[in-house]
């Protein structure tokens, strides 16, 4: 052995010209919240397609439903929090959904979000009367407002692919009826208004808008669909079956509670029931705790509202209760 190997020998700074060139190239690409609508919708649609597709089970043999006979779901909702384990998150995220079912998702309409400067502009762009909190935490100011675009997608069920998804998720005990092949579901995401607030380093995003609509062929067994959704989220088979039969799936909105959350509970915003999910903010590198985040979701009069923030929860509740 001549000497100790110099294991740091290859380390050095990249060429400055290379670094500048790459930075410039990245900057030429779009960034910010006006990300391409297709990406948003495709992912959304793909997610729904998995839940809907693998849960499709037609209780009547005739599946040639006309548009007029479609069911409209999620017009009024209650939120149900479902804890998701890190393992389930890994499994679902590990699926290449776009590859598996991306070509079965047809984007019929896509519109990018636009920045607006006033409530009136937001109301005009969104098509509904926008409400805003009249009470803000001390020192907090509104910093941004934007209106998301309307997006519509059609998903066509492909039983072969859906079985692959089930298999990949380890849920091969769930059967996909062959009659599903070629059936379609329609998803419409109406414009949502997003308002940003800052209180020093603390931030809040307030989102409001109509509930997304999912139109499915008449005869879909919603309980079975819900059961599949719950299983995908990691609920044990028996529990998922019992729970799925006990709720009205036309009005129930599952909210997965991510592993990073430390607690969740039901709450009231005015007379409306909602849920609160809370968790710590960790430094991405050191993972040291540097504060808390919270998410408040509630529904009222056919609209859904949400505040995601790093502000104090009491301040967030005060904001939510002061909407006008």
């Amino acid at each position: 052995m001549a000497s100790e190997p110099n294991l740091d020998a290859l380390r050095g700074q990249p060429d400055q010209e290379f670094a500048d060139r790459l930075r410039a190239r990245l900057r030429q690409q779009p960034r910010g919240r006006t990300r391409p609508a297709r990406g948003v919708l495709t992912k959304l649609a793909a997610g729904v397609a998995v839940a809907a597709g693998i849960g499709f089970a037609l209780t009547i043999p005739t599946v040639r439903a006309k548009a007029s006979s479609f069911l409209a779901l999620f017009r009024e909702v209650s939120f149900v929090a479902v804890p998701v384990s890190p393992g389930e998150v890994e499994r679902v995220n590990g699926l290449d959904l776009e590859h598996l079912i991306g070509d079965r998702v047809q984007v019929l309409e896509q519109n990018a979000s636009v920045d607006v400067t006033s409530r009136e502009q937001a109301s005009q762009a969104s098509g509904f009367t926008v409400v805003l909190p009249t009470v803000l935490p001390e020192g907090a100011v509104q910093t941004a407002m934007s209106v998301g675009g309307r997006n519509v997608a059609r998903i066509t069920a492909d039983t072969t692919r859906l079985k692959q998804v089930l298999g990949a998720l380890g849920l091969s005990d769930l059967e996909v009826p062959d009659e599903l092949d070629g059936e379609t579901a329609m998803i419409t995401v109406s414009p949502m208004v997003l308002t940003g607030y800052e209180q020093g380093e603390r931030k809040a995003s307030f989102i409001q808008g109509p509930m997304p609509e999912v139109l499915m062929p008449a005869g879909v067994d919603l309980a079975q669909l819900g059961e599949i959704g719950l299983r995908v989220l990691g609920m044990p088979a028996d529990e998922a079956r019992t729970f799925a039969k006990s709720v009205d799936w036309r009005t129930t909105f599952l909210v997965p509670v991510p592993p990073m959350a430390t607690r969740f509970r039901q709450t009231l915003v005015g007379a409306s029931r909602g849920i609160v999910i809370e968790g710590p903010i960790r430094d991405p590198e050191t993972k040291a705790e540097k504060g808390n985040w919270n998410l408040l979701l509630w529904s009222q009069s056919g609209r859904v509202y949400g505040i995601r923030s790093t502000m104090r929860l009491s301040d967030v509740m005060a904001m939510a209760n002061s909407l006008q």
């Binding site: 959304l44 998701v84 985040w293």
Partner: peptide, 14 residues
């Protein structure tokens, strides 16, 4: 849709 909510609340401000 629930997946979208998860993405929304867990999006990292980078």
């Amino acid at each position: 849709m629930p997946g979208r909510i998860v993405r929304w609340i867990s999006r990292e401000e980078i």
